[in-house]
Every structure is written in C-alpha cells, then in structure tokens.
C-alpha cells in the first residue's frame, strides 16, 4: 500500500521543476563509478556480486561458492560490491526571522526543495533537517522517489517560528550526518555564528558543508519610512531607532562584517559559502547553489 504524498503546488510549481531540471548537481569525480551515479564501492556488504577470491581462514562459510568448487575444485569465496548512495543533508533554518520579510521563507523552502530534488535525481540519500532553537529530523528521502516528493511535502507544511540557534543546530546535525556526507545549510544567519567548533567536527568527519545565506536588502538597510519602534520578530525585544543616515550606515557596516566573518569561518573549515539575495530570481539562486564558485559538491 502506497501512501499518497502531496506537496504545495504553488510553492513547488512548474517553474520550480523546470529550473531544477536545468541545474543538476555536480558529481564528485573520485566517487563516481560511472557518469550520473555516485556510489562508494565496498566489497562484501551489498548484494551485487563483485568477484571470487580464494578462501582464507576466517571467511564466512556462507560466502563460499560451491558451484565454483565443483567446477574448479578450488574453494573460492564470493565477494559482493557494497553499493551505498551519497548522503545529502539539507539543514533548513525555520526560525521566525526567516519569515521577515515575507518572501524569505518562501524562497528558502524552494531552494531547499531544489537541493533535495537535485540530490534525489543524483541518487543521493536526501535528509531534511529543520532547525530553530533545536534541530529536528523532518524527513529522510526514499531513493525510489526521484522527485523527493516527501521532502517537498514536508517543506510545504513548514512554518517559520521560534528563535535561531545555528551553533547548537550544527552540533546536533553533526551527530546525525554520516561520514562523507554533504551538508547544505540554508539560513538568514541572523544569529551569532561562532560555528568554528561544530564546523571543525564536521570537517574531521569528512562532511562537506555548503552555507547558503538567504538575505534581503532590508537585513542590511532597514526600510523605515516613518517613525516606528522596531521589534525583533524572534525575541520580541524593542529598540529605539530613528533611521538617521549614520545609524543606517552603521547597521549596514555591521551586517557586512557579520556576513563576511561567517563566510570566513565556513571557508576556514573547507566549506562553501553562497550568498543568495532575494532580489535575484529563483533560477539564478538555484544555479548559485548548484555550482558554488570553485567547488563541486
């Protein structure tokens, strides 16, 4: 019995699939067995036959090829190719700040969906983890579903709430991500980004990281047309902000510094950092994510 999985067709519309199909994820050459398939060859673990070799003490007798013994009068042991797909983990920030401005969370979910679909089409094992204060394992993609409809359905149902704790979320995600996986983090990065420690751990675990910074122009220069009290959508904190030119310039300077520092930390851990402005079209965003400068994931 197959459970029907539905996703929001307004969020993931025809244009979405058109863009995603035109932007396939790159292949890591050393892991490729053949073009279009990413597989790690490990003998003896999977069901696909690989070779016969002479029996050695300690080998599992269940692996002895008795037909070969009758024909060749030699004790040979079957060896199987251990075929395991690549893990692609999408870590999506679902905190309340992603909902401000209104289009940010929409764009972030479409990008996460694009990454998932592209990974599924590459036969990756796609895992979607959402996080705000804590990270939550939302869905694990079935390899039989080349359109990652389960992930898309999960993304369709998400809401932006709670506060952001990127550091803790990376720590938690690191415990779930398997060695050699690829971790794609989509966030507005509007939280402290002292992420050196979890990044180091991921690096040691040969996890490739790609930080996708989804940002709006208002993050850098607030749009204050009249006197109003700014309220932090996550914490409810207020501040006095007149919107004078020096204040706005200082705001932009701090934002730039924060983003640059975060990018430096990511690159220091051999990760990739992609800036996704909401002002760019979605197709451009997908291309930026699929082929980050100087790297192939």
């Amino acid at each position: 019995m197959t459970r029907a999985v539905e996703f929001d067709t307004t969020l993931f519309d025809a244009e979405f699939f058109s863009v995603v199909r035109g932007a396939r994820l790159p292949v890591r050459p050393r892991d490729a067995v053949r073009a279009g398939i990413r597989a790690v060859r490990r003998l003896g673990e999977s069901l696909e036959f690989a070779e016969l070799r002479p029996y050695q003490p300690g080998d599992d007798l269940r692996l002895v090829d008795w037909n070969a013994f009758r024909r060749l009068d030699r004790v040979l042991v079957r060896r199987y190719q251990a075929e395991r797909s690549h893990d692609l983990v999408v870590l999506l920030d679902t905190s309340a700040s992603m909902g401000v401005p209104a289009g940010r969370f929409h764009r972030a979910r479409r990008l996460a969906g694009a990454v998932a679909v592209m990974g599924a089409q590459r036969n990756d094992r796609v895992t979607l983890i959402t996080f705000d204060t804590v990270s939550r394992l939302s869905v694990v993609h079935s390899r039989r579903d080349t359109n990652a409809t389960g992930v898309l359905a999960t993304l369709s149902a998400l809401r932006s709430t709670g506060q952001t704790d990127l550091v803790e979320s990376l720590v938690a995600a690191g415990e779930r991500v398997r060695r050699g996986s690829t971790l794609v983090v989509l966030s507005d990065l509007l939280s402290p980004t002292a992420i050196e420690s979890p990044l180091s751990r991921l690096q040691r675990n040969h996890v490739r990281t790609l930080f996708v910074h989804v940002w709006a122009a208002a993050d850098r220069t607030p749009d204050l047309r009249s006197v109003a009290t700014p309220i932090d959508v996550e914490t409810g904190d207020e501040t006095a902000f007149l919107g004078s030119r020096p204040q706005l310039e200082e705001h932009a300077r701090r934002f730039d510094h924060h983003v640059e520092a975060t990018a430096e930390r990511v690159r220091a851990a051999e990760g990739e950092f992609v800036s996704i402005p909401l002002s760019d079209p979605f197709s451009q965003n997908v291309l930026d994510v699929a082929r980050p400068a100087g790297a192939a994931w």
């Binding site: 401005p101 940010r104 509007l190 993050d219 109003a228 932090d232």
Partner: peptide, 23 residues
Amino acid sequence: KRSIFVASLMFWDSGDPREQHRF
C-alpha cells in the same frame, strides 16, 4: 505606538541617549 517587526535587532544601534530622546 507604531511598531514594525524586523528579522533581527543584531545590528541596530540604540546606544546613543540623544538618539533615543529624539526618537
């Protein structure tokens, strides 16, 4: 009191008392 919700107050400078008074 008019208020607007913003994504974060990380980069907002409200330290100047004169600025707060003017606000």
